[in-house]
């Protein structure tokens, strides 16, 4: 493999930064939107009135996973045209699945006896949700968000295919011209974004998780 340090440095520091900002947007906007949609939906689905739909929704989510990431990116583009909008749309949908699934799993995993005890102490349904169920399921929920971060930051590299920008632009240039330096530089920055976000979420997780559940 030909590898020129100079070209690598220039790829990393001259060419990448604007794309890195785009990439960060391609990750954060879908992730936040996805959380705002998926978390309450999943919580709602575990409420008594909707619980009968949970399995069906889970099946739907699991099927969603079989759609290839490239297809997800591509699918909105004929309807929404070139640009960031189709990419953001697609990535949001992609990020939904792990968050929703883990929220459901987390809430379902709260032991029945803990809930009984809470009810026995006279907690209302809402109090129980906010004081018992959500705090106890937080580690699982956060794990889902982290999976979404990794999936989204990787898949966002495909956003460039539909004109969404991001680090994919640099990587695809590298593929078209057989330039390992560009590919590696692009990958490195995506990796850094994913890892930094992951660490940030760990910090948030530590703040949100009740002290006795920490390992």
């Amino acid at each position: 493999m030909e590898f020129e340090m100079e070209r690598f440095i220039s790829a990393l520091f001259d060419r990448s930064p604007p794309h890195a900002v785009e990439h960060l947007q391609l990750v954060l906007i879908p992730l936040t939107t996805a959380f705002i949609i998926a978390f309450p939906t999943a919580v709602l689905l575990t409420r008594r009135r909707f619980i009968k739909y949970t399995d069906r929704v889970m099946t739907f989510f699991n099927m969603g996973q079989t759609i290839p990431p490239l297809a997800v990116i591509a699918i909105f583009f004929p309807f929404l045209g070139l640009g960031r909008t189709p990419a953001l749309f697609a990535l949001t949908i992609y990020a939904l699945l792990p968050i929703a699934r883990n929220t459901l799993a987390g809430l379902k995993g709260v032991p029945q006896d803990v809930k009984e005890a809470a009810r026995g102490m006279g907690m209302s349904e809402w109090e129980m949700l906010f004081k018992v169920e959500i705090p106890l399921s937080m580690p699982v929920v956060m794990a889902g968000v982290k999976i979404s971060v990794v999936l989204t930051s990787g898949t966002a590299a495909l956003g460039a295919l539909v004109g969404g920008g991001g680090m994919g632009a640099v990587i695809f240039a590298g593929i078209d011209f057989f330039r390992a330096e560009l590919i590696i530089a692009g990958t490195l920055i995506i990796g850094v974004i994913a890892i930094v976000l992951d660490r940030l979420l760990t910090v948030i997780d530590n703040i949100l998780t009740p002290p006795h559940m920490k390992t």
Partner: peptide, 14 residues
């Protein structure tokens, strides 16, 4: 797992 698929493919072809 953090490396995007397209990068991994790209790195191998170089």
């Amino acid at each position: 797992f953090v490396i995007p698929s397209i990068s991994l493919f790209g790195i191998f072809i170089t």
